[in-house]
Amino acid sequence: MPRRGHSVQYTTSPLLASKTPVWRSRFIVAAIALGFVVLAGRAAYVQVIGNDFFQRQGAVRFARTLDMPANRGRIFDRNGLLLASSVIAPSIWAIPEDIERDDPDVKAKLKLVAKLLEMPQKDFDKKLEDEDKTFVWIKRQVDAPIAKQIADLNIKGIYQRKEYKRQYPNGESAAHVVGFTNVEDRGQEGIELQFDRELAGRAGSRRVIKDRLGRVVEGVGETVPPLDGKDIQLSVDSKV
């Protein structure tokens, strides 16, 4: 029988004999118990004391307010001839850190995207270099057929956002009167600038929860629908 304060012998076989000092056994048990206490304390802090803080952090990281663009109003001449209108033009954006650029298949698809967007490969690659960014514009207001081809490639980390692009059926013939808008769809010259507030309308918003891939998981809170801009009819005859 082992004496108190010495070692515990688990077998009488010389080959299988294992002697563990009592102090070491007690130390291991105490360390394991301490680990459980720390974990229990951390769980209590997260669930009770710091619950509000962690919920706010989760909302900041995954809750997003999506802008819902309004359709800019149309411009007509006095005879009802269309001088300016807006068409859907998706914009391409990316989360660089989500793109698996080392994958040969993804590399080939990215080269195709650059070609479809008519961007120099060097400029395209530069936009994706900073993997710390969680949002970067690739190209704004792309033609719908091009955007569809890019969407069909299904590249993780490459996404699209609905926007509008201005079209002028008469081209430059009425540009001195109608004016033009910038990439943000704001009036810069002529009627587009003078009546920008009426034409622009008001963008809507939607509060959503997104997953790590940028996909909308669910809607939260109130959705404010967009208010489309007003049409304007001029007193001028574009044919004169």
Score class of each variant (00 low, 15 high):
residue 82 L to R: 11
residue 24 R to M: 12
residue 80 G to R: 00
residue 16 L to D: 04
residue 73 G to H: 02
residue 77 D to R: 05
residue 76 F to M: 04
residue 36 F to R: 04
residue 88 I to E: 12
residue 98 D to F: 03
residue 103 D to H: 02
residue 23 W to R: 12
residue 54 F to Q: 05
residue 29 V to I: 12
residue 18 S to I: 06
residue 107 K to I: 04
residue 91 S to K: 07
residue 89 A to Q: 10
residue 39 L to V: 08
residue 33 A to K: 11
residue 70 A to T: 11
residue 57 Q to P: 08
residue 62 F to Q: 14
residue 50 G to W: 00
residue 81 L to F: 09
residue 61 R to G: 05
residue 98 D to M: 14
residue 101 R to H: 11
residue 27 F to Y: 08
residue 69 P to N: 01
residue 97 E to T: 07
residue 54 F to K: 00
residue 12 T to R: 12
residue 72 R to T: 05
residue 14 P to I: 14
residue 108 A to G: 07
residue 76 F to L: 07
residue 35 G to H: 09
residue 66 L to H: 13
residue 30 A to I: 12
residue 74 R to L: 07
residue 104 P to M: 07
residue 92 I to S: 00
residue 16 L to A: 03
residue 98 D to H: 03
residue 20 T to M: 13
residue 59 A to P: 01
residue 91 S to L: 07
residue 45 Y to R: 12
residue 12 T to G: 15
residue 98 D to W: 06
residue 93 W to R: 00
residue 14 P to K: 10
residue 81 L to D: 11
residue 14 P to L: 15
residue 30 A to H: 09
residue 38 V to S: 05
residue 89 A to R: 02
residue 34 L to F: 15
residue 99 I to C: 03
residue 98 D to P: 00
residue 84 A to E: 11
residue 66 L to Y: 00
residue 97 E to F: 08
residue 39 L to F: 11
residue 76 F to A: 02
residue 62 F to I: 01
residue 87 V to Q: 04
residue 98 D to L: 15
residue 19 K to T: 13
residue 69 P to A: 00
residue 76 F to Q: 04
residue 67 D to V: 13
residue 19 K to G: 01
residue 52 D to S: 12
residue 53 F to Q: 09
residue 54 F to D: 07
residue 34 L to A: 05
residue 15 L to D: 06
residue 89 A to S: 12
residue 93 W to E: 07
residue 18 S to K: 08
residue 107 K to C: 02
residue 49 I to D: 11
residue 19 K to S: 06
residue 39 L to H: 02
residue 105 D to N: 01
residue 39 L to R: 02
residue 52 D to E: 07
residue 78 R to C: 09
residue 30 A to K: 10
residue 29 V to G: 14
residue 100 E to I: 01
residue 55 Q to E: 12
residue 105 D to C: 01
residue 17 A to W: 06
residue 61 R to F: 12
residue 62 F to S: 07
residue 85 S to V: 06
residue 80 G to Y: 00
residue 19 K to H: 03
residue 81 L to G: 07
residue 24 R to W: 12
residue 75 I to G: 05
residue 65 T to Y: 04
residue 39 L to C: 04
residue 12 T to P: 02
residue 106 V to Q: 03
residue 93 W to I: 04
residue 31 A to F: 03
residue 48 V to W: 11
residue 90 P to T: 05
residue 30 A to D: 02
residue 85 S to R: 04
residue 92 I to Q: 11
residue 73 G to V: 10
residue 80 G to W: 05
residue 94 A to N: 09
residue 66 L to G: 02
residue 36 F to L: 13
residue 31 A to G: 14
residue 69 P to C: 05
residue 48 V to G: 05
residue 100 E to C: 06
residue 35 G to L: 08
residue 67 D to F: 04
residue 73 G to D: 04
residue 72 R to V: 12
residue 38 V to F: 08
residue 25 S to C: 09
residue 106 V to K: 02
residue 59 A to K: 01
residue 104 P to C: 08
residue 50 G to F: 02
residue 20 T to Q: 12
residue 42 R to K: 10
residue 52 D to F: 08
residue 41 G to D: 10
residue 16 L to M: 14
residue 34 L to Y: 10
residue 104 P to D: 08
residue 85 S to K: 10
residue 66 L to F: 14
residue 69 P to S: 00
residue 80 G to L: 04
residue 68 M to L: 15
residue 47 Q to E: 13
residue 104 P to A: 08
residue 20 T to H: 03
residue 73 G to Y: 15
residue 90 P to S: 09
residue 20 T to E: 10
residue 11 T to P: 11
residue 23 W to V: 02
